[in-house]
């Protein structure tokens, strides 16, 4: 059976079942079969036109725009993420550098202090040594002078004693007197000591 005949009799069947009441009241224009070919013709024409316009012009453009926007948004988000990560890394590096610098500075400070302290100690020691040397020398000199003085004293005493004895007893053996005086001076020194 040809399609058109099938369709025509199909319409007939639908008309028979559906709108009997409506047709009785003067008829629904929707079931006026004579308008069907024209309606279908214009439907096909206008829908085909719309389809061509949509699929060739409108939809590719909108699709392109939306895709471009999505790509842009994604890349912007990625860029923001990357920038944030970079900022985070930089902040981390900065903090590390800061800590390092701080450590270095305190190390330098300690080193300097230690060096200064060592220097001070060394110079103090040198001064002390020098002083000790001077003191030792001074002591030695004093001891020498004292010894000299004492030696002078014993010879003076012997002289004095010899002259005193000479005046008292006449001539005296000088060397004997000197030895005795020296011994006496020695004992006296020991006693005073």
């Amino acid at each position: 059976m040809p399609v058109s005949a099938l369709r025509a009799s199909g319409w007939g069947a639908i008309l028979a079942i559906l709108p009997a009441a409506a047709r009785a009241e003067g008829g629904m224009p929707q079931f006026d079969v004579s308008t069907f070919p024209s309606q279908i013709f214009w439907l096909v024409v206008s829908f085909a036109l719309l389809y061509v316009l949509m699929s060739w012009l409108v939809l590719p453009r909108i699709g392109h725009t939306i895709e471009a926007r999505e790509a842009k948004i994604q890349s912007d988000l990625d860029a923001a993420q990357k920038a944030n990560d970079a900022a985070r890394v930089a902040a981390e590096a900065q903090r590390k550098a800061l800590a390092e610098a701080r450590g270095k500075a305190s190390a330098t400070l300690r080193q300097t202090t230690d060096a200064a302290a060592a220097e001070t100690t060394a110079s103090l020691a040198a001064i002390g040594e020098k002083l000790a040397g001077k003191i030792g020398e001074a002591e030695r000199r004093i001891a020498e002078q004292r010894a000299q003085a004492l030696a002078g004293l014993s010879s003076l005493a012997a002289e004095i004693a010899g002259s005193v004895l000479g005046k008292l007893v006449g001539t005296v053996d000088g060397t004997q007197v000197a030895a005795k005086v020296a011994a006496a001076v020695e004992t006296a020194r020991k006693g005073t000591k």
Binding site: S38, W42, V45, S46, L50
Partner: peptide
Amino acid sequence: IAVTNSAIFMLGAVAISS
């Protein structure tokens, strides 16, 4: 096939939406 009021509105819908 004539231009009908239905056809005008079909083509109009296509025109306006396009």
